[in-house]
């Protein structure tokens, strides 16, 4: 297991707790305490705002999910060439990819987001060519900047993982494919990429959870995701804890769903000895 993998697993939930012999005697007591605590929360805290905001919360959750999936898919598409170039590319491309990964991984996502939104966003209107182009209606909104920042960040982190995954595919398998007379592209498409993706799946799971944990940052540039809706609720109802606890619950559920989905996907791929 590489350092990247173990760090991702230490910072993102990739496995649900539980499993064998869940109901031990002490757990029943702990569960009872937990149930009492949850009951107290439900009874003594104010939750009457939930029905009023249910629609907006669902919309915000949709935006969060849309952000998550679009940036993960786009980021992964960038990550594959980034990783591949670092393993096999000519040295100028290798250097470029490595510099890109270092810069993005070395600066906070919040700063990148604000750099794109406030920095580029304030620069664009000064160029008439951009103002007249068909892109302008989109560039005036906040979400393209959020998608761009999250995509770039995911590509850089996942590119590093894909580099390790591409390098880790046994050379014998690639040589065997070459010996069958496959072209370079065919080797890549049939052997190298699928094997690398398979190796990267556990880390990909963690990176996706990390990406979900990064999505609330887009609320700081006025994208109305689940976090932004909750902030709005906190401002209008003057409640400190209840909306935040509810938001934490939403993210817990989303993470659990992601983890289960990845586990199912991993189990579908046949492996030797499994």
């Amino acid at each position: 297991m590489t350092v990247e993998t173990s760090t991702v697993e230490a910072t993102a939930l990739t496995e649900l707790p539980g499993g064998r012999a869940f109901l031990k005697p002490h757990r029943i007591i702990l569960l009872a305490i937990a149930v009492i605590a949850i009951f107290c929360m439900a009874w003594f805290m104010r939750w009457d705002w939930i029905p009023d905001y249910a629609g907006r919360l669902a919309q915000g959750g949709g935006v969060t999910l849309l952000m998550l999936f679009s940036t993960c898919i786009l980021g992964f598409l960038f990550a594959v060439p980034l990783g591949l170039v670092q393993v096999t590319g000519p040295w100028p491309l290798k250097m470029l990819a490595r510099t890109f990964c270092t810069i993005i991984r070395g600066t906070p996502l919040l700063l990148q987001l604000w750099l794109l939104y406030y920095g580029l966003g304030s620069l664009f209107p000064q160029f008439p060519a951009i103002r007249d182009s068909f892109l302008w209606p989109y560039l005036r909104e906040a979400w393209p900047y959020g998608v761009a920042a999250l995509t770039i960040s995911f590509a850089a982190y996942e590119g590093e993982v894909m580099r390790g995954a591409f390098a880790g595919v046994p050379a014998g398998e690639l040589e065997a494919a070459r010996a069958y007379g496959m072209s370079r592209w065919k080797v890549f498409r049939r052997i190298w990429l699928p094997r690398a993706v398979h190796r990267a799946l556990p880390t990909l799971n963690g990176e996706t959870v990390l990406q979900l944990k990064s999505t609330p940052l887009v609320a700081t540039i006025t994208v109305v995701d689940a976090y932004a809706v909750i902030s709005k609720i906190r401002q209008t109802t003057y409640l400190t804890y209840e909306p935040l606890l509810f938001l934490a619950l939403i993210y817990l559920c989303l993470t659990a769903i992601l983890v289960v989905a990845f586990r199912t996907l991993e189990n579908k791929i046949p492996t030797r000895g499994a």
């Binding site: 230490a10 707790p17 002490h26 757990r27 609330p216 804890y241 935040l244 938001l247 993210y251």
Partner: peptide
Amino acid sequence: PVLKDLLEVYTTLVRAIPELVLILL
């Protein structure tokens, strides 16, 4: 066993909830 379970809850929650939300809470 109790300490182990409580620590498991702690690490699970922190690893599943965004830092931003945790920091506010």
